[in-house]
Write a protein that binds this DNA or RNA. Structure first.
Length: 233
DNA sequence: GTCCAGGGCCGTT
DNA sequence: AACGGCCATGGA
């Protein structure tokens, strides 16, 4: 049975309800007068190939040390930063990436998030991709969840899903992204796309953790009748 | 002990 | 362009 991204979105909305990402600590930022968008950016880097539970520990350490803001990260000693974010793994290169971003952002944008995000989507994306340690998924997560720009995030879960569900798309990052965006932007108005992309990515992550694991657990999966893997095994 | 997680970079083919 | 090795912790 063929299926489209729009159909997938509706099935998962039915199953999981109104998910809304990205998880951040609003109270911390109110208290410290810092911008919550920075927490999203740091989280997007720290979660690269890493379980979110480990990222939470690293973010918690950053808060404990009052370092979850551009100014403090831009001047922190690298080995101290690496030690603070240690639980998130790959801590040496992630310390570099996080600090590089803070330095760049402070220098080029005077730590002004509106100035950075209030521009053309593709211009910002290109700029993000030019930075150390920011690839397609991290860039798009930042654009969608911190910048509220309409762009669909493709991750390992999405790719895995596309290998099991008979979508009409190839397997490269850009192909999958365009396929989802073409289909969904036909059904939803521009204003709603940010919310739709937000929820759908969140839904796919939950689905993949519950059912569409590397070793699938298809029992009670909402996609059984649309899934090649399930119907061929 | 083994496997895996909300990737990206770099060097080789 | 595509692929392999590398980076590293913590939970299942």
């Amino acid at each position: 049975m063929t299926i489209t991204p729009t159909k997938l979105y509706k099935i998962l909305l039915e199953k999981y309800g109104d998910l809304n990402w990205w998880p951040i600590d609003k109270k911390y930022h109110e208290k410290n007068c810092s911008d919550p968008r920075f927490e999203i950016i740091i989280g997007a880097i720290l979660t690269q190939n890493t379980a979110w539970s480990n990222v939470e520990k690293a973010l918690s350490n950053l808060k404990k040390n009052k370092k979850l803001d551009i100014e403090n990260i831009s001047i922190i000693n690298l080995s101290e930063l690496a030690d603070i974010i240690r639980p998130s793994g790959f801590f040496n290169q992630k310390a570099n990436r996080v600090k590089d971003f803070a330095i760049y952002f402070k220098k080029e944008y005077k730590s002004n998030f509106d100035k950075f995000f209030n521009r053309n989507l593709q211009i910002i994306r290109k700029e993000l991709l030019s930075l150390n340690g920011i690839g397609p998924e991290t860039a798009d997560s930042i654009l969608l969840y911190a910048g509220n720009h309409p762009i669909f995030v493709v991750d390992a879960y999405t790719k895995r899903l596309c290998n099991r569900i008979p979508f009409k798309t190839k397997n490269s990052y850009e192909d999958i992204q365009k396929y989802f965006e073409n289909d969904l932007s036909n059904k939803y108005k521009n204003k709603d796309l940010v919310k739709v992309y937000n929820k759908l990515h969140a839904q796919i992550v939950i689905l993949a953790k519950e059912h569409c694991k590397k070793k699938p657990e298809c029992n009670s999966c909402p996609l059984q009748k649309n899934c090649n893997y399930f119907n061929n095994s």
